[in-house]
Computed example of a mutant assay.
Amino acid sequence: MRRFTVRHFAVRATALLLATASLSACAPLVLGTAVGGAFMATDRRTSGMQLEDQTIQLKARNRALDVLGDRGHLNVNAYNRLVLLTGEVPTEADRDAVGQAVARTENVTAVVNELAVSLNSSLSSRASDVALATKVRATLVDARDLLSNAFDIVVERGEVYLMGMVTEREANRAAELVSTIQGVRKVVKVFQIISEDELARKLPRPAPVSNGNSTAP
């Protein structure tokens, strides 16, 4: 099980990738950032940051396509200005060039380049990744000690990448659960680690309860 956190990005980050609109080898399942008030309300990013991440993904995709064209299979996912690149490219030089191009995208603070130098994944492999992503999400939803929408899930060739703004406890618990799912080859943690106090400040506060004693003027 590998792990990336914001503490590692200064030395590890070298590249970023683009997310394709069609079925791809990367199967993202990002309920926490889906359009709609219910999901946005449980995302630990501000609504402004969620929109910024969407913009980063689009711009990074364009930069990657300018470099690679149709010579590979590329995906990009952004969370809190951190970009994860997954997919396949023909050569190591292509991998580096895409990463460098994406790293220059406006507002990107770090890039984790997980592009594989290999042939493009097959359609059947991508379909399996979509199904596996659904199983991963369901497992996190069923976990009573985790908020599933705090996690972004990316699946590539059976490898599960977990993104999000979580505590050390949540990161370890989620990775432990996902690693037990049949079909998962590897779990890679790509998290921004926050403290328990920071988490408490981000959680929504319950609405005040009326005592029912108010009187009309």
Rank of each mutant, 00 (worst) to 15 (best):
Q54E: 06
T5W: 04
S125N: 07
A27L: 06
R2M: 08
S47V: 12
L16H: 02
V35E: 15
T139V: 14
K189I: 04
A41G: 05
L162H: 14
V160I: 04
N120A: 15
K202V: 05
E88Q: 14
L16F: 09
L58W: 10
M163S: 11
S22C: 01
V155E: 02
R71Q: 13
D96A: 14
K135D: 02
V188T: 12
P204R: 02
R12H: 02
E170H: 15
L23M: 14
L31M: 14
D145A: 08
V141F: 15
M49A: 06
Q182P: 08
L140D: 02
A133N: 05
A127Y: 10
D129M: 05
R3S: 09
R169G: 11
K59S: 10
R137E: 10
R144M: 07
S214N: 01
T20Y: 12
G36D: 05
T180S: 12
G36R: 04
Y79L: 07
P208K: 12
E88P: 01
E198P: 02
K202E: 05
L123Y: 14
V166H: 10
L84I: 08
T109L: 08
Q100E: 15
V98K: 00
T86P: 01
F39L: 07
A127N: 06
A101H: 08
T46C: 09
S124G: 00
L51E: 12
A21D: 15
L199S: 06
V11I: 13
T86W: 11
L115W: 11
R126P: 00
L140I: 05
Q100I: 03
T5Q: 11
R157I: 05
E168V: 11
A21P: 11
P204E: 03
V11D: 13
R44L: 12
S179Q: 04
A21Q: 15
L119F: 06
T55N: 06
A15F: 04
D43M: 00
E156F: 07
G212D: 14
T55P: 01
V184N: 04
M1H: 03
V35F: 12
D66S: 04
E106H: 05
G212Y: 08
